[in-house]
């Protein structure tokens, strides 16, 4: 009899299981979609690097059997920028949470998108800081209860697809932990797209966000997604704000072309230096990055 094996053991660090995530947490589902997308995109696993910051989602890098970097809070994007520019052959994915990427790391997010650095940013949004016990963050809808908004959040939250598009991302989508197939497809498209690609993954945090707001368990949250989701690929990203228990518009919103940082650098220097300049990295890729 052959021993049962996990279908993803070539891509997950099985020697690190069990993972730290709670039952019903959406991160595991997002990781499954990520692993499937890596296979679908047919990128050699040896050429992929994944970078995370800090937080529950920040632990993703540590479970991927890839070159994986668990960095500091907020700095996954600039770390990934250095990695990609130093070795343009790599496919680089930043996988981290909303607090990490959009609050403490928000400045890096907009600038990497503006420069169109050829990296993929997969941002899991569970509307709160989970690792530290469920505090409010830049995505917490008004008036959700968190430990630091005990009377209900009253700050206006970011709409991440709008921020990403406005900053210059060439690929922008939003899906939820319920939409495994569509999320996988979208991540695959992002991986194959050259330039700064952004995928937002709305996911349940039953232990903290749902519990404090008396929203039930992980399954309840998926039911809410099921009932309130509107799929609209043509949606205007200005209209994608998420209110408390309100409808969530998902879709593949943006897919456009713009020279990447490396393309622009090579074009400029070739114009200036002519034949003396040896283009850095690979200028054009046949399929994907």
């Amino acid at each position: 009899m052959t021993e049962a094996t996990h279908p993803m053991e070539n891509i997950l660090r099985m020697d690190r299981m069990p993972h730290i995530w709670c039952p019903g947490c959406g991160i595991g589902t997002a990781v499954t979609a990520f692993a499937m997308a890596l296979e679908k995109a047919e990128i050699p696993l040896d050429n992929i690097a994944v970078v995370s910051g800090i937080g529950c989602t920040g632990r993703v890098a540590g479970y991927m059997k890839l070159d994986s970097f668990h960095t500091t809070h907020g700095r996954a994007i600039p770390f990934a920028t250095g990695l990609k520019l130093a070795n343009p052959e790599l496919t680089v994915i930043v996988f981290s949470g909303d607090g990490d990427l959009i609050a403490i790391g928000g400045n890096h997010f907009i600038h990497a998108a503006r420069r169109n650095v050829d990296i993929n940013v997969f941002c899991l949004n569970n509307f709160n800081y989970a690792m530290t016990g469920g505090q409010s963050g830049p995505t917490t809808p008004e008036p959700a209860i968190t430990t630091t908004s005990p009377y209900g959040a009253f700050e206006h939250p970011f709409s991440l697809p709008f921020l990403a598009e406005g900053s210059g991302a060439v690929y922008v989508s939003r899906w939820t932990a319920l939409h495994i197939r569509r999320l996988t497809n979208s991540m695959t498209e992002a991986l194959q797209k050259r330039g700064f690609s952004f995928v937002e993954i709305i996911a349940p945090c039953p232990t903290l966000y749902s519990r404090r707001n008396r929203l039930g368990d992980g399954l309840e949250e998926l039911k809410y997604y099921h009932d309130q989701i509107v799929i609209d690929h043509e949606a205007d990203t200005r209209e994608l704000g998420i209110g408390f228990r309100d409808q969530i518009v998902v879709g593949n919103f943006v897919d456009r072309e713009r020279p990447t940082f490396m393309d622009a650098l090579n074009t400029r220097f070739t114009e200036v230096f002519g034949k003396k300049y040896e283009p850095y990295g690979k200028v054009a890729h046949e399929n994907g990055n």
Binding site: F69, R75, P78, G82, N107
Partner: peptide, 17 residues
């Protein structure tokens, strides 16, 4: 980079690259 936080982070990434 956009600031010194990013500069040093990119430098670490560059080294691993």
């Amino acid at each position: 980079m956009e600031d010194e936080l990013a500069s040093i982070a990119a430098v670490l990434g560059g080294s691993w690259g």
